[in-house]
Each structure stands twice: as C-alpha cells, then as structure tokens.
C-alpha cells in the first residue's frame, strides 16, 4: 500500500492541486504536502498525494553509478 511512483508536475491547477503526467497519462495530484513544488518538478506520488519532491541531481548521480557498474560487466548487457 506504500506503492508510489515518480511523475512530473505538468501544471498547477489551484492552490495545493495539480496535474502530473505519468507515461503519457495525466493524474490528479494533491500538492498540499509539498508546498515547495513547482511546475516541472518530479514528485513521488502515493495515493493521489505528492509526498516528496525529487532531487534531480541525486537522480542523475544514481543513474551514473549504475551505468558505471553495468559498464564493468559488458558481457552481461541485455
């Protein structure tokens, strides 16, 4: 039940209310718990509420780390 997904805020519709785009779909998202969130931010959405704003720098860093690890095992590339 703690299923949550990352999605980008497509627009702010009203104070505390927005629409996020997720894989081409639009989902209503309540932004009351993340007052600092702006249009274009990536947020973690759980049960229709954004519970966290993602850190793009950290996300890029994680991706870089995994690409490096994968590069060390080139024969396993699937």
């Amino acid at each position: 039940m703690c299923l949550a997904v990352p999605a980008r805020i497509a627009r702010i519709d009203a104070p505390g209310q927005g629409t996020a785009s997720y894989m081409g779909s639009q989902v209503k998202v309540n932004l009351s718990l993340v007052p600092q969130a702006r249009q274009g931010d990536w947020v973690i959405i759980h049960a229709g509420f954004a519970i966290s704003v993602m850190d793009e720098k950290e996300a890029r860093e994680t991706l870089r780390l995994f690409k490096e690890m994968a590069a060390a095992f080139p024969d396993e590339a699937a």
């Binding site: 995994f66 690890m69 994968a70 590069a71 060390a72 080139p74 396993e76 590339a77």
Partner: peptide, 14 residues
C-alpha cells in the same frame, strides 16, 4: 530508471 534494472549492474552488486 532503466539502469537500476540493468542485469549487468545488478550482477556487479550481487
């Protein structure tokens, strides 16, 4: 987040 499912990276971690 595909790299976080990359079999080569997972194998390295394992």
């Amino acid at each position: 987040m595909k790299p976080l499912r990359d079999p080569a990276a997972l194998k390295a971690l394992l």
